[in-house]
Design a protein around this nucleic acid. Sequence first.
DNA 1: CAACTGACTTAACTTGAGCTACAGTCAGGG
DNA 2: CCCTGACTGTAGCTCAAGTTAAGTCAGTTG
Lengths: 317, 317
Amino acid sequence: MELDVRRLFLLAEIAEYGSLTGAAEAMMYTTSAVSQQMRRLEAEAGQTLFERRARGVVLTDAGAALVARAHAIRRELAGAESDLEALSGLHAGTVRIGSFPTASASILPLVLTQFSRQHPAIAVSVRSALRDPLRELLLMRDVELALFWEYDWSLFEDDAIETERLLDDPTVLVVAAGSEVGGTGPVKLSSMAGERWIIRADGHPVADVLTRSCHAAGFAPDIAYDAHDYQEAQAMVAAGLGVALAPRLSLTNLRDDVRLVPLDPQTPVPVRRILMGQLKGHQPTPAILGFQDTLREAARAMPKTFSQQGQLGSVNQ
Amino acid sequence: MELDVRRLFLLAEIAEYGSLTGAAEAMMYTTSAVSQQMRRLEAEAGQTLFERRARGVVLTDAGAALVARAHAIRRELAGAESDLEALSGLHAGTVRIGSFPTASASILPLVLTQFSRQHPAIAVSVRSALRDPLRELLLMRDVELALFWEYDWSLFEDDAIETERLLDDPTVLVVAAGSEVGGTGPVKLSSMAGERWIIRADGHPVADVLTRSCHAAGFAPDIAYDAHDYQEAQAMVAAGLGVALAPRLSLTNLRDDVRLVPLDPQTPVPVRRILMGQLKGHQPTPAILGFQDTLREAARAMPKTFSQQGQLGSVNQ
DNA sequence: CAACTGACTTAACTTGAGCTACAGTCAGGG
DNA sequence: CCCTGACTGTAGCTCAAGTTAAGTCAGTTG
């Protein structure tokens, strides 16, 4: 048998108007079409669905039962449409984001609170990982969007991933609070040749920043300490072991006993670019699009956030 | 937008198999057909419903929502089919019956109890009326089936109603319990010429039976009393005012102080035929068909019922 | 790393379900 | 008794939903 849903809807229409002709007018069909469809439906149902009277028709028990089912199906369809509505209107949905540790500790919290305030019904999950595992998460579709970083000399490139530049994260100098360095404003790196340096251990990419920058400024840095994270580096700077170069974003929660000094923009200042990446040709869901908007928004506001946190004037160009 | 239900089902199939190809095989389509249908469905939905991977597809939130709705609709359809099943298997439904007073008081109670024992889920409603109003009920479709009666000289005829003879209801003689009439078996009406008679008043059709029968037997009956119903007539017979002729069915609950005497079948005995009538060309519902079966069954068993109630031997031919 | 495989897409073509137009048929109502 | 309103039947057209065939693309395998 296998009842056809369109015919059930037509039957419901007939029930409403009490005649095939009425239903036909409502549906913009001819009466004949309705009659033919109902013949089929009765064949599918295996029984008479309405009695033909001289002025219209009246449902049998079977017809009435099918009309009730038709209404239930209509409700489901309406529900389906409102589901879609909710998803496209960001009243429902999920996003899965990948991020690297520094971003997770700085810009991302802002973005997450902002986003969940704007779209409280959308569930966000974040996975934090280093650059290559992160790329892998994206390629494996374990996340739909990921944050990456790059320097001029180590560009992020993957021909399956398209990126958008979110924000420039400038390199700044971290000095002990009591230090006189930068008391008069931005400093030239070349003037720091005599300092000792705190560096990130294990060939961390930011170590590159120091060696390259100093090389460009015409000296080789004197390494005082290999720190394993930015907190440790800050602590060593505070302790007076030396000064450090660090991306501004990594310094979101700054110790009281250290101070940031901008580098003189006259000389080339290494900039870490923060990128937002997604799979190429991967149609983003409405929820992802919304999340991207919030990300861009937050990135645009970031320089202001930096300056509100004091210590630095306009760090970003 | 207006989502198409068949496509939703196809999507559910895809969800189940995890690939268009799998769904295509299950539905005996080509992959191409499935792909085209899904393109349409996505257009209807206004968003991507699944991500294309190298080995199959995985649903987006929107896709998953639609699949859930598809399952709900499937359940409704299954429910609709089981509704139909119930109605055709007489596990559901209604019948509306019309009947005349004598039948309502005799054969109908048996039929109703029998039917509701066989098909407890079917609701029966009975409307009782005299012959012409009853015909009207049937023509107006206020009942789907009605019981009628006829005598040879007043046949029930209506070219919009088709009838089926259910049962012959013989005319019998009602005498006081102490009477000697019929002590030796069936009596000839002609031998009753000297009796006084109890008759139904107001030109009730059964009055015809008496006058015609007596006329045929060669005498005119001496009317002792005009009764308004069969109970009153029985009471008068019991009181010794006279004897009466009555259709056997009208005497289902017989007083202790009256007795039934069969008429000698050698001479023409007026017989009331009980008919079952329905609108011509009116497709009966399964429930009606079932009720008709029970009616025929009860009618066939009626003569036995008569004889079990004693007094009369084989009344029916 | 080239060829293979499995899965989705696209284009062109085919087919039949589902319309329309139109010509009944049938039952009530003036 | 014809007229009207409503359902039915037939013939034909149209377009949606299939198929076939020829890609494309991403993993996998020899």
